[in-house]
Simulated scan of single mutants.
Amino acid sequence: MERRNFLRMSALTAGTTAFSASWWQGAHAAPAQNAVSPYGALLGADANGLQLPSGFTSQVVARSSQVVPGTSYTWHGAPDGGACYADGTGWIYVSNSEISGSGGGASMLRFNSAGTVTAASRILSGTSSNCAGGKTPWNTWLSCEETSTGRVWETYPFGGTAVARPAMGRFKHEAAAADPVRQVVYLTEDETNGRFYRFVPTTWGNLSAGTLQVLVAGSGTSGSFSWANVPDPDGSPTATRSQVSGSKSFNGGEGCHNQNDTVWITTKGDNRVWQFNLLTSTFELAYDDGLVSPGPAPLTGVDNITGSSSGDLYVAEDGGNMEICMITPDDKISVFLRITGQSSSEITGPAFSPAGNRLYFSSQRGTSGSSSGGITYCVTGPFRT
């Protein structure tokens, strides 16, 4: 038996209990396999260099180092994680800047009901390597610093001064996902032996105080999990990932998405999407590039992740073929879009507009391969709802 098939059978056998427990939800119950996209084949590249399915169109909404059309604001370099917020008849798209030193931070674009930019501005400055993050139910943006002593910054797209939230831990933060049902915020860590955390605020809606916890589980790809308190969230002198015996190691934690009593995280080091059933406290693989049949695996360089109201997951690539792939609730994976001519970049910040008919994202380094050449896009079309 080939090693890939052996691994797949082992993972499926080990995860039988977890699969049965979550199968009734009818969504993402096994490692996803190749399939034809529900949107059909990709067409040739459009004027913006994007290959899209029929019925979808693209536009460039901002370029790094250039003034955003219709405003006086110069868009930041190295655009990364993002999210959308309803704003009256329009909406806001927030984007991080993964510039190191003190050049990072985050910016926002405000759109009217027609999808035209009406304003742009900074919402966070003077921070470093702001990679991903997450949206809160109270309409703030958690901007995460991807440094060894990185912090989570709570920012205010609708106005207000950004505030550091040290109680959420000092480590190489990547993404965050708020869970209003359990009143916690999940956090990923971009280390080869990173951990998966959750922050339990003392008061929901106030992130100034609370308890940082780490996921405890076996070393396999499925099973049960629990949470344990991290004794010293400051991470000094002992890193947070090394403080709790039995905490589970993840190879390069990246994106994080919470929906319908499930939280997903991506790990770039092993090209996996992990799924955590919050009702049964079990976990399993939603995707593994070594378990795809028939091959080849469509998704590599697994990075940022978001979801649509239909339950489809959209996973961006850091490298790979510069694609956003989609995983459907029936465990099928396919390519949704591809950016051509930008092999030295990565796709970042996928986020849907409130109506669900527009997908925003960036190419972090664009055609130039430099952080000053980032491009932020919008794709409009008949997304499944």
Rank of each mutant, 00 (worst) to 15 (best):
S344D: 15
M326D: 03
L313S: 13
A351H: 02
T340H: 07
S310P: 08
V335D: 04
G307D: 14
C325Q: 13
N357R: 10
Y314G: 07
T328I: 12
I327C: 06
Y314T: 04
T306G: 04
N321F: 05
S343G: 03
L299D: 14
D312K: 03
C325M: 10
I339A: 15
I339K: 15
S334C: 13
P350H: 05
K332S: 07
S310F: 07
G349T: 10
T300P: 01
D331H: 15
D303H: 13
P329Y: 05
F352W: 05
D330V: 12
G320E: 10
I305M: 13
T328G: 03
T328Y: 11
D303V: 06
I333S: 00
G307R: 13
G341W: 04
I305R: 04
P350D: 06
A355F: 05
T300D: 07
M322E: 14
F336M: 12
S310V: 01
Q342N: 09
R338H: 10
S353P: 05
A297Q: 02
C325T: 14
K332P: 00
P350S: 02
G341T: 07
P298C: 09
A297V: 08
P354I: 03
V335Q: 04
S334I: 01
F336I: 09
L299A: 06
S310I: 01
M322T: 07
R338W: 12
D331Q: 15
D303R: 07
P329L: 05
L299I: 08
T328S: 12
A351V: 01
I327W: 06
R338Q: 14
P298W: 04
S309Y: 06
Y314R: 05
I324N: 02
F336C: 11
V335P: 03
S344G: 11
I347E: 00
F352A: 09
D312Y: 10
P350M: 02
G320C: 11
V335R: 07
A351C: 09
T348Q: 12
T306D: 11
N304T: 11
G301M: 06
N357D: 14
Y314H: 08
M322Q: 15
N321Y: 10
T300R: 15
D312E: 13
L313Q: 08
D331V: 11
T348L: 10
Y314F: 15
R358L: 06
S353T: 09
